[in-house]
Design a binder for these strands. Structure first.
Lengths: 334, 334
DNA sequence: TTCTCGCTTGGAAACGTTTCCAATTCCTGT
DNA sequence: ACAGGAATTGGAAACGTTTCCAAGCGAGAA
């Protein structure tokens, strides 16, 4: 069924029908009414491919979520969608679980549809350096720092991960902790993990302690089981740890369980600080001290950056949003 | 840039170029090579709108996630994407957070693009009865029961929620609990909550107890804060509760916190059982007894049903997958 | 040489829209 | 009654592909 069918049946021309469909002026009420009626009667649906073809218009903003199961991303996704929707921009999200080929395919696929813009949630972007440099679609990285990654063509909004991690570990240090284990940040070298690790190292260094990677650091993916296993190994290796810094709340969740499984209590024997301030750290028993990354604000700024680029063609920008150490119940003073 | 530009520059006709693009036979190696070279040189990218228009082909499978932040959905999404990808089907996911208008818009939008198929994750479908009846795109509901909802045109895969809930509450009953509070399932009447509630009621009934909705039931959304608030209210109202059944693990997470905040211990003073078996219940302290809903299997079956419908036009089917009560540490025998 | 047959190739038509321009109709003021 | 302008309308052209049919070509058979 065609716009021509509608035209024929309604007695008007295709031009008029098209104008009705697109809510354009210069159509008499009579015509509009009649045409709408016929469309309803025939159950007509415009063909969006033809439409997009003709309008040279683009498909909605494509959002890529790098890693499923990290609550932080869920928290960002909602506000992001809301902020974009407010300006009439639809989003289409693709979930990626890290496999390089999969990511490539997905990005290529979406790129081929010429999305208006793209948003990347999450950090394991290193392997895509090559593909990313070619991107000219307005794009923003959320939670990862494009400038540090060397993508001058992409915007990004993130917190200062190294400072944030430094303050988290600093907090532990101020409370008298000296033997601090660090868990999270995956081996492959995700940017986020790396930056947070660097912050931790700095804090330690400022207190005259050099981080012993071999002994006090255990990498893992940002997923509960990763945190659990990594912490288990860490604890096994160095029993004298008095605190654990998890590079993400999901990881902290696993860590908490691992600590308890070892017969230790939090914060009684081992203190724990997380990162992100997702629902987990707010509701866990005990409530977890963590670094708050404001998901809503991140999302909002990302949306704004994208919108700016879409509307005025604003150049790629890098933006930092504030973080905040939120003290709860999982850290004990020594 | 056009397929015609490629044709002109390569010295071949558009037909041949098109055949090269689509990897079709009947093209000499010489031609193929030359055309590929020109395409690379000019950085040509086929216009997918034109292509889809002409091929009357459809956009990828659209997945709708009804409610962001419920870990269960994340757990399903990964395997679902994987299973579909294995058969070459891409997915595009839309996140919905329950607002009726938003859902309508999103579904309309995706429908207009004529997706090959659709998948709905989650249950608050009641308000869309009208729209759903008109769907003729192969679609499957995951986690919700299409037949009970009266959508003969949709497939669905789910567990038997009422039996599962019955066994969960039965477990509590067998352990001697008599004063059981139920929390979760939202007021608006999501199917899932309703079914689980019914199962709980049955179990109680079988033990000669009639559920007092006013006193022992507190509805809430499937989100941590909902579980927290609802449980707080419940506990305030009836202090003699000896167990709480949360209609979802996320809810149980909030419930656990609320119980502890009241100075009660789990399972010492209050036992807790959840539903879903997401990472939360496995890693929580204490580990939560819950009803296992096999996310991977759910996803796999859903993918298969959809694929069948896509390939052979198999009719809508309703499928049940097994559930399992997994006993952990949050239930005490009285 | 001539015929056939199979592989390549070219290009017009079609997919379902929007857009633009020209044509028509309808008012309004004189 | 009529001119002139505004509002409405019709329909051809164009968007960038794929598809189909006809045509070209060469090689092997007769």
């Amino acid at each position: 069924m065609d716009i021509r069918d509608i035209a024929a049946k309604s007695g008007y021309g295709v031009g008029t029908v098209s104008r009705v469909i697109n809510d354009q002026p210069n159509v008499s009420d009579r015509a509009r009414e009649r045409i709408l009626a016929v469309m309803a009667e025939l159950g007509y649906e415009p063909n969006s491919n033809a439409r997009y073809l003709k309008m040279r218009s683009q498909t909605p903003v494509a959002v890529f979520v790098m890693g499923v199961g990290n609550r932080m991303f869920d928290d960002i996704l909602g506000p992001l969608q809301a902020a974009l929707a407010r300006e009439g921009e639809q989003i289409v999200v693709t979930y990626l679980n890290g496999d390089v080929d999969e990511v490539r395919t997905a990005i290529d696929y979406q790129q081929a549809r010429h999305p208006k813009g793209m948003v990347f949630l999450g950090g394991e972007l290193e392997s895509f350096r090559a593909s990313f440099h070619e991107i000219e679609t307005p794009s923003v990285l959320v939670t990862a720092d494009a400038s540090q990654l060397g993508f001058a063509n992409l915007s990004s909004v993130t917190i200062d991960n190294v400072s944030a991690a430094r303050s988290a570990v600093g907090h532990l240090l101020e409370r008298g902790h000296r033997r601090i284990g660090i868990v999270g940040g995956n081996r492959a070298g995700g940017q986020i993990g790396e930056l947070r690790l660097r912050g931790a190292e700095q804090a330690l260094h400022e207190h005259g302690i050099e981080l012993d990677y071999e002994r006090d650091f255990e990498p893992c993916d940002f997923i509960e089981v990763g945190g659990y296993e990594a912490t288990r190994r860490l604890l096994e290796r160095s029993g004298d740890l008095t605190a654990v810094f998890a590079l993400g709340d999901v990881v902290a969740f696993g860590a908490l369980r691992a600590i308890v499984d070892r017969g230790l209590s939090v914060p009684g024997e081992v203190s724990l600080v997380g990162f992100d301030d997702t629902a987990f750290s707010q509701y866990a028993v005990p409530r977890i001290t963590t670094v708050r990354q404001d998901a809503a604000r991140l999302a909002e700024r990302a949306a704004q950056l994208l919108l700016d680029a879409l509307r005025d063609g604003s150049p790629a920008t890098h933006e930092l949003v504030d973080f905040e150490l939120v003290e709860r119940e999982s850290v004990r003073s020594l």
